[in-house]
Nucleic acid binder design. Sequence first.
DNA 1: TGACTAAGTTCTATTTTGGAACTTACTATT
DNA 2: AATAGTAAGTTCCAAAATAGAACTTAGTCA
Lengths: 157, 157
Amino acid sequence: MKCSVARTLSVIGDRWTMLIVRDAFLGKRRFADFQDDLGMTRHRLSARLGKLIDEGILMRVRYQDRPPRFEYRLTEKGIDLYPVIVAMLRWGDRWMAGADGPPIELVHKNCGKHVMPALTCPACKEEVNARTMSARPGPGLRRRSHPPVARISSRKE
Amino acid sequence: MKCSVARTLSVIGDRWTMLIVRDAFLGKRRFADFQDDLGMTRHRLSARLGKLIDEGILMRVRYQDRPPRFEYRLTEKGIDLYPVIVAMLRWGDRWMAGADGPPIELVHKNCGKHVMPALTCPACKEEVNARTMSARPGPGLRRRSHPPVARISSRKE
DNA sequence: TGACTAAGTTCTATTTTGGAACTTACTATT
DNA sequence: AATAGTAAGTTCCAAAATAGAACTTAGTCA
């Protein structure tokens, strides 16, 4: 699996995982919180939480001793999924919003403004999109004896 | 389903869809291109392409008349999934990369630099992350007679 | 003692997916 | 004129994953 997108999807590419992560960003921590909000079966939730712990996205923290009770918190690796959530939020707002407008708004604490963050080029600060970006093989593909998996072509319109 | 993330995931939240979209960004268009690259069964690929067309993310374009042959191209709605792909690429590069380094690099055509785009605040231009952003109910939730689905709390560290 | 709670696990029925073979509508080769 | 090849699917059955409900654990509370 030579692509980071594929590697990412091997962890978060299913119907529930990013909803669990979203709930974690919204402050939910306990088994029952996730279960009530998502309406998934305990069985699946348990399995998903376990996988997220194995992958290092959540950690299981004891919050009470008798009886033993645990809650789930995002790790650094999990917190770093935020841009994926925001990208999904942005797309959903734009293409799947109901008549009422977006259900959630984001606020940038540092400047206090209600904004939707955008993808920008760190070199020139311009907003980027599929048309202004192109892909090429990186170090993980270049130094290979066998031929690259596929010729990487930039989309030509 | 009151959340745009959930609405987005109802379309792209499975093991294959974003890989198909990624391949489309890399220039693949034909049934066999997707099938060879992804190794998914024709059966599933056919079903997935069909769903992506129904959702307006791909369009089916006749590229030859006898015998009739079709290819799949991203619509505007599909092209707008680019930030989701980039966010996944970025996370995969950072947390799941092999020893060789990232398999794919991105270039910003406008400035020619090899970069990884970042999420920034459109108001103050700072890069944002989960800790510098917070969520609050938007118009889609505010004007409701019945109580909000869940109290939205910002993560407090 | 009995009811309640949070966090799971176990079990079976249903749904989804994988894999291989088959189909369609042609073109190219012998 | 038969045979092989190609691109894009469809069909069918077995295997795997998921849903839903019941059960378990380790306690507290009245």
